[in-house]
Design a protein around this nucleic acid. Sequence first.
RNA 1: GGAGAAGUGGCUGAGUGGCUGAAAGCGGCACCCUGCUAAGGUGUUAUGUGGAGUAAUCUGCAUCCAGGGUUCGAAUCCCUGCUUCUCCGCCA
Length: 421
Amino acid sequence: MLDIKVIRENPEKVNELLKRRNKDLSIDNILVIDAQRRQIQFEADELKAKRKNESQKIGLMKKNGENTDAIQEEVRAMGDKIKELEEKQAQLDNEQRQALLYIPNTPSEDTPIGSDDTSNPVVYVWGEPTKKPYELKPHWDLCVEKNMVDFEKGVKLAHTRFALYRNKGALLERSIINFFLEVHTQKHGYEEILPPVLVNSAAMTGTGQLPKFKEDMFKCVDEDLYLIPTAEVPVTNMYADEPLSEDELPKLLTAYTPCFRREAGSAGKDTRGLIRQHQFNKVELVKLTTPEQAREEHLKLTDDAKEILELLELPYRVVELCTGDIGFSAKKCFDLEVWMPSYNGYKEISSCSWFGDYQARRANLKYRRKDNGKMEFVHTINGSGLAVGRTFAAICENFQTEDGKILVPKVLQKYTGCETI
RNA sequence: GGAGAAGUGGCUGAGUGGCUGAAAGCGGCACCCUGCUAAGGUGUUAUGUGGAGUAAUCUGCAUCCAGGGUUCGAAUCCCUGCUUCUCCGCCA
């Protein structure tokens, strides 16, 4: 969430940045709550100080054998008033926190301004869109023909938008996961994490999924547990309420997990194939950094994701998300888009975001600075490195041969144990 | 799942109703001393949130797992929850 002090001291600036996302956003109501809240706290604190003094007096009087009935009654009445003020204060605290939880992050000053994805500038292109003299089948046909993915079984066992991988399909999916993890741990220096895929509402609130995006997630009926929509949630929250020391930063973490999304509101979108499933695999990259390190580490994390696509020799481009398209918690974000013949276009395969201290405030992620010994919020950064199902689809489509085979990218062959599928 | 015990500052650990935001030790930091090394001395060392001040800083309140309760007053008493440990049961 945003820093209330920044909001208080610089409301015009905050409003201006928020309106770059959406002109309806405003923190004006929060300022009103904040002023009331501080007034009440001031009154309550003064009264509590008074009660403390009087109570100590009673202790002394009792020691001296004096009668304290009158003063006790007086302090009791004070207690009633304090309780009243405390309740009011708690209510205002809560109101303010709730309001803040629904305000998105302020975009970075240099995030391009625009209202939707049509304003996202392309900042980098690698390779050429795949062109072949023969027809490239969409992966949803090819994979079914080759008995690699069984969409019907997925639907039968669970629900629409669930798939079952089998045979070489399961092998390819598993190989991609292993390849991703190995590059990020061996080459890029990330620590591998295998986290729980169910997390509680505190974790979901920390990274910004709750409370606003509740309908996007699968929730357990009788427990305060949600299926994670991304490994970002458990991994970013690992150090919540647990200050790090500055030498531990930047902290680089990577995790493979299945991800679960309700895709509420996506009815009719990407209904064929592996592109938009309720369950999909992803390897995530997460960084916790100092504010000074953040921008550079964000670029480096994006490079780590880009490198995967280059190693696989998949054509892709990078777009920078504009203020109207950027995620709720992010300040700045690059999307990596892979060439997907079935779409005759580029399709998102990774989203690399810098969150500033927005998530850190929500999750209470802090570190102790070396220069002044003070506690400070870390900056969080994350990105897909990469989405596995979409990589699977991109490989199937971009690398198919005329006789219906799929060429396994060189770097994957040691995992699949074969050159073609 | 059943029974019992326990949760205090970065760590160990004292503290059963008031002068304890919290002893002591360790660790950390600063300075001093010692011609190396090791040791020693002095001081300092929690977080959150208000108020005053340009600021350095001063100051109120809250916080001893969490939330309630009792009391003039709670780390200390009571209730609930969570977590950890031990024993039993079950189990991949």
